[in-house]
Design a protein around this nucleic acid. Structure first.
Length: 478
DNA sequence: ATGTTC
């Protein structure tokens, strides 16, 4: 390669740098096959575009990388806050604070009859609205909604949908600092006020899963996970609310970039200095949407508990393991390569993977590092990992977020038939409830890499450490 | 991802 320099710098580690464009190299964690597909794809240009942003100091690309809006999904972009480093909504994504939470039950899967599993899925599908325009049974006025999103998970505690102990297991206790709903548009509030406790569509899901394999007994024990245990994984975000916040601020930034003399290679990289008035406003609006997403996953958890109790009785327990975010930006002082910098850390399809004894960790997980959940596709596996010291040193404490798409929605629709897919899943013991057949086909396992491949890479590189494998047995989709 | 192509 000439201008687009790709250099292998270690086992599963590459650098990408384009002379005259990149301010810093992107460090890519991948195997050869992933590198090949990256080089053949638009996502290569997106990686290079990110390395050209003003004030960018570190770019990390994860093995689940694929094309996204402006920034590739599977990227971490850190800019220097004190030196005019930018913040860009495209580096966070439209679904602000999309994330995953894992719930553990006190039920062994072998004790759950098919009949009860089906009943449970019926109830879950009934109680958790899913699909694009789905609305919640919680309908708030605009004024009420504003208070609710400012309170974040504290509102769930006040309303009996979460316990004080439980919210310790959510990043920032589910209440972001620096929230200001007055920087959120009236349209966003309109879209969000009837969507709390709804799943959404696309790759979002609620799954009944079984702990299928344990790779680390000690850590599993601390997390309260054991083989054959029934668990619940929830993957969703901030719905139309976050989407509108992102849209509003992309437009605002496009209008204001000239003022800061910012030139970008793609309109989708719209950005302003994080310390500018527009940047500050976006940060407060993004944090408000982040509160929404935490609350959304919490309210869904409450509904899951209701469904479980009705089907399985009062002795059933459904406890939060942890709640992670994979579309978010934070501003943090970080010591990297011996240098202390205030970083604007954009993570888009990337998960925080904090090392053991990090300040941000809840007491019960201090010794093991931050729990990391990597959802795979509906037919194969999802994974539990933990953050490591090596992630602190190599990626400012980040790892991957999923399997990564290999086929577009349109492509997979041409290849897979809904009825065939349902039969294949049924033969594997996986039942489905979905509000849209098209969505199920778009999310077919064949449209994704096997999450095992991605997880194996991050584990071997050491930017997180594998703990357990989870296998889906029931799926609720939008 | 999304009141599914502003």
């Amino acid at each position: 390669m000439k201008l687009q320099e790709l250099e292998k710098i270690g086992e599963y580690i590459y650098k990408i740098y384009k002379e005259g464009i990149s301010n810093v190299p992107a460090v890519v964690f991948a195997d050869e096959k992933i590198i090949d597909s990256l080089m053949a794809d638009q996502s290569l240009n997106q990686v290079i575009n990110v390395t050209s942003l003003r004030g960018v100091v570190y770019v990390f690309i994860m093995p689940d990388v694929h094309w996204g809006y402006g920034f590739p999904i599977g990227s971490v972009a850190c800019t220097n806050y004190d030196e005019g480093g930018v913040i860009s909504p495209g580096g966070i994504g439209f679904d602000i604070n999309c994330g995953v939470r894992l719930l553990k039950t006190n039920i062994s899967f072998k004790n759950l009859s098919d009949n009860l599993k089906e009943k449970l899925l019926d109830k879950l599908f009934e109680y958790v609205p899913s699909g694009v325009a789905s609305e919640s049974d919680i309908k708030l006025s605009k004024a009420e909604f504003k208070k609710v999103v400012e309170k974040g998970l504290n509102w769930a505690v006040e309303n009996g949908m979460a316990s004080e102990n439980e919210i310790e297991l959510v990043e920032d206790r589910g209440v972001k600092d620096n929230v200001d709903v007055s920087n959120v548009s009236s349209e966003a509030i309109d879209r969000g006020k009837c969507q709390l406790g709804t799943l959404g569509s696309g790759n979002h899901f609620l799954e009944l899963q079984v702990v299928d394999n344990i790779y680390n007994d000690k850590v599993s024990k601390v997390l309260g996970l054991y083989k054959d245990q029934l668990v619940v994984m929830i993957h969703c975000g901030s719905r139309g609310f976050g989407h509108q916040v992102a849209t509003d601020y992309i437009n605002l930034m496009l209008k204001n970039m000239d003022k800061y003399n910012i030139k970008i290679l793609d309109k989708q990289l719209a950005c302003v200095p994080a310390s500018s008035p527009e940047g500050q406003k976006y940060i407060t609006a993004m944090n408000t949407a982040a509160n929404f997403a935490h609350l959304n996953r919490q309210i869904i958890t409450h509904k899951v508990r209701k469904a479980f109790r009705e089907v399985l009785g009062k002795t059933v327990s459904v406890d939060l393991v942890y709640d992670i975010s994979h579309n978010m930006a934070t501003i943090e002082n970080y010591v990297f390569n011996g240098k202390k910098v205030k970083l604007v850390m954009h993570r888009k399809g990337a998960t925080r993977a904090l090392p053991p004894f990090h300040n941000f960790l809840p007491d019960k997980y201090k010794t093991i590092g931050q729990p990391v959940f990597i959802p795979g596709d509906m037919g194969r596996y999802s994974f539990v990992l933990v953050g490591t010291q090596k992630a602190y040193e190599l990626t400012c404490s980040h790892t991957c977020h999923g399997a990564g798409r290999t086929k577009s929605r349109n492509q997979i629709k041409k290849e897979i038939d809904y009825t065939d897919l349902l039969k294949i899943l049924k033969d594997k013991g996986i039942s489905i409830r979905a509000s849209s057949k098209a969505t199920v086909v778009e999310e077919a396992p064949e449209a994704y890499k096997d999450a095992s491949i991605v997880v194996d890479i991050v584990d071997k590189v050491g930017i997180s450490s594998i703990v357990a494998r989870l296998r889906p047995v029931g799926v609720v989709k939008g």
